[in-house]
């Protein structure tokens, strides 16, 4: 894999990855234009005459009906997209930043630095994701920050591993040695010469991490460890669950955020599925 153009070619040759990319694209657009798209404020308690508009079914006024407290489900879903994406992007950036830097150090420096980072990564990879996050959340004040920190703290090893492998092979390239001969410091070689080569790969892993982060946020919120003031898909699911939407058959309330989450995770999966071909072209040919 060379560069951004390789990523572009990859999307062209991988129809599944294109679908994944399209889902991400749509979600980003919805998040950006949430103000314009949402028909009602997400937390506004709607009324029909004097009565609170509880459990309205799907209709032209409320495409996805209303919640137990008379809020418009579609508007919540749209605003939830923004919250989801904010959490997802922040966490993904954190994952990529930590994973890339540690992978770079580990792969380029080798020796004891590599041993320590690899050892640490193995431990973190061994931790079960959800329980670890809940432990973290219960130790501190629940909220979005905890979610982001735990996603970053628990998911970086995946990125670090592939970046390390990539750096190991880049390190053997003659132009890396040439940089040494022409007087580049180790830091300069790592961050000016090698880093740009692995960024596209890091970005790919980042896009997968977005899905994970959103799912993690939803799980945390659903279990009550999230930030109750943000309108997210997880909070929606949690409210729906707490108000027995399931037994009331109000699927128009819980299905949409559920489907949105699944779409997000699916998108991440589709992109990562094809990425093997990009990372190990020789393998894919066989």
């Amino acid at each position: 894999m060379r560069s951004a153009s390789a990523i572009l070619r990859f999307f062209r040759s991988e129809p599944f990855a294109v679908i994944g990319g399209a889902i991400y694209g749509a979600i980003v657009l919805v998040a950006i234009f949430a103000d314009g798209l949402a028909p009602y404020p997400p937390k506004a308690i709607l009324r029909v005459g004097a009565r609170v508009a509880r459990y309205l079914p799907m209709s032209a006024d409320h495409w996805l009906g209303t919640t137990s407290s008379g809020r418009d489900v579609l508007s919540q879903l749209i605003w939830g997209t923004r919250a989801a994406l904010a959490v997802g992007l922040t966490a993904a950036v954190a994952v990529v930043a930590i994973g890339t830097v540690l992978g770079l150090l580990s792969g380029y420096l080798g020796g004891w630095v590599d041993k320590i980072i690899t050892w640490f990564a193995d431990i973190v990879l061994g931790l079960p994701f959800l329980p670890s996050m809940l432990v973290l959340a219960s130790l501190t004040r629940p909220g979005t920050l905890v979610v982001i920190l735990s996603v970053a703290g628990l998911l970086w090893p995946n990125t670090a591993r592939v970046i390390r492998a990539q750096v190991l092979s880049l390190r053997e390239r003659a132009w890396v040695e040439a940089a040494r001969v022409t007087g580049c410091s180790t830091g300069r070689i790592m961050f000016v010469h090698v880093l740009p080569q692995v960024l596209p790969l890091a970005a790919l892993y980042g896009s997968v991490a977005i899905g994970w982060a959103i799912l993690a946020e939803a799980s945390a919120s659903f279990l009550g460890f999230g930030d109750p003031d943000t309108m997210s898909w997880g909070v929606m699911l949690q409210e729906a669950y707490a108000n027995q939407a399931l037994s009331r058959g109000a699927w128009n309330w819980f299905a949409p955020p559920g489907a949105a989450l699944m779409a997000m995770v699916l998108a991440g999966f589709l992109i990562s599925r094809g990425s093997e071909k990009l990372l190990f072209p020789k393998l894919a040919e066989q």
């Binding site: 060379r2 560069s3 390239r173 003659a174 132009w175 040695e177 040439a178 940089a179 040494r180 001969v181 022409t182 007087g183 010469h193 740009p196 080569q197």
Partner: peptide
Amino acid sequence: FRAQAQLVFQNPFDALNPR
């Protein structure tokens, strides 16, 4: 010392940073 001792590489296709 590096400024005074330089290397010409075997494989020119790999000796320059492609970017």
